[in-house]
């Protein structure tokens, strides 16, 4: 399988504080990789390095053959091909739902307004929110907003998707509606890198699990190995804590 995202010895500092230390891993085309680990371990930072929302000082990240750290890389163009979903949704509150889905299609990809809105509506139908097309984000529940955020990313026809704790800001009863959309995406063969603590989702959907601790990638193994015999003590502790409830 060819590699979609390849992370090679990435190091990142905030001032004197090293957030990421020698992180290396890769995500193949069509693969679903779950990233987990305690809060503050650097998961968000790592995933934001993949589409250069965060710069890193050492190492290299290659996305679909393009080096993210290369100063000559056209980052907006690269980012437009990598979908990203955030913990707090980050829909554009001043735009309607369908405008949220259409704006980058028209301004970045140069699609016509009609084409972009038609595509937006189709994706809204897919995530079950067509009826809300002309509302504003603030008028939707958290779960609905996150489904719109996924649709917004999909509207750009991404080559892969990054998720940063997409369900951890949601009320429990809304988590599944979002996980269902993600599961469906994974089944369709989307390449996905998901920071999440939803171990049920990881068990069902992931191909591989990465466990991070204090800026290091401590475990990087197949799902079965991870849930069967995680090798590090930290990972075992983490799992027992998270699986308790």
């Amino acid at each position: 399988m060819s590699s979609m995202i390849s992370i090679n010895n990435v190091n990142k500092w905030y001032g004197d504080f090293q957030v990421l230390t020698d992180c290396s891993t890769s995500v193949s085309k069509g693969e679903v990789v779950v990233v987990c680990g305690p809060s503050g371990s650097g998961k968000s930072t790592l995933i934001k390095c993949v589409n250069a929302l965060e710069p890193f000082q050492k190492g290299d990240i290659i996305v679909d053959g393009i080096s993210v750290g290369d100063p000559k890389t056209n980052l907006p163009k690269l980012r437009s091909r990598v979908g990203m979903v955030f913990q707090h949704f980050e829909l554009f509150p001043h735009l309607t739902i369908v405008e949220n889905l259409a704006i980058a299609q028209t301004k970045v990809l140069g699609r016509s307004k009609e084409e972009a809105e038609a595509k937006g509506i189709k994706l809204l139908e897919r995530v079950g929110l067509k009826a809300h097309a002309h509302k504003h984000p603030g008028q939707l529940s958290g779960g609905q907003q996150q489904r719109v955020a996924i649709a917004r990313a999909l509207a750009m026809d991404p080559i892969c998707m990054l998720f940063d704790e997409p369900t951890s800001a949601l009320d429990p009863e809304m988590i599944n509606e979002v996980l269902d959309v993600m599961t469906e995406l994974a089944k369709e063969g989307m390449t996905m890198m998901c920071v999440t603590h939803e171990m049920g989702f990881a068990r069902r959907v992931a191909d591989r699990v990465i466990f991070m601790d204090r800026g290091h990638i401590v475990e990087d193994c197949s799902k079965d190995d991870f849930f069967g015999t995680p090798r590090s003590e930290r990972a075992q502790q983490f799992l027992s804590k998270i699986l308790q409830h």
Partner: peptide, 25 residues
Amino acid sequence: KGQSNAAQAVGFTVAQSYRYVLLPQ
């Protein structure tokens, strides 16, 4: 802070982020 991240994540340049996302808000 997430708004400017989200604007850049969909492929907006810095100028476009300001024009379409940050300044209207």
